[in-house]
Amino acid sequence: MNWRKSSYSGGGDGDACVEVAVLPTRIAVRDSKAPTRAALTFTVSTFVALVEHIKAASGG
């Protein structure tokens, strides 16, 4: 899987965030500080709804 960190990872070494991998039919999300632990997977539509909810809740 090709994991990507958010551009909003913050300062320092950028490990205070989640990483996302695009799969053929799902989106995988994992904690960048614990990459060997299990990842969550979402359907694309559920992931989009999650991101929109997070944006709305944070005022962005």
Rank of each mutant, 00 (worst) to 15 (best):
M1S: 08
M1H: 04
N2I: 01
N2T: 01
N2D: 01
W3N: 05
W3R: 00
R4V: 10
R4L: 11
R4A: 11
K5D: 01
K5T: 05
K5H: 05
K5A: 13
K5M: 11
S6T: 11
Y8V: 03
Y8L: 12
Y8A: 01
S9M: 14
G10T: 02
G10L: 07
G10K: 07
G10C: 05
G10P: 05
G10R: 09
G12C: 02
D13K: 09
G14F: 07
D15Q: 15
C17M: 13
V18N: 04
V18G: 05
E19L: 11
E19T: 13
E19Y: 10
V20R: 08
V20A: 05
V20D: 02
A21N: 06
V22A: 11
V22Y: 07
L23V: 13
P24V: 10
T25E: 15
T25K: 12
T25R: 10
R26M: 12
R26F: 03
R30G: 06
S32K: 02
S32H: 14
S32Y: 14
K33V: 15
A34P: 12
A34G: 10
P35S: 12
T36I: 08
T36L: 06
T36K: 14
T36P: 02
A38C: 09
A39S: 08
A39E: 05
L40A: 02
T41Y: 10
F42G: 02
F42C: 00
T43H: 15
T43Q: 06
V44L: 11
S45G: 06
S45E: 15
S45P: 07
F47P: 00
V48I: 10
A49P: 04
V51M: 13
V51S: 05
V51G: 00
E52K: 11
E52H: 03
E52T: 07
H53K: 08
H53D: 05
H53L: 07
I54Y: 07
I54R: 07
I54G: 07
K55Y: 00
K55M: 04
A56Y: 02
A57K: 08
A57E: 14
A57R: 10
A57Q: 11
S58Y: 03
S58L: 13
G59A: 08
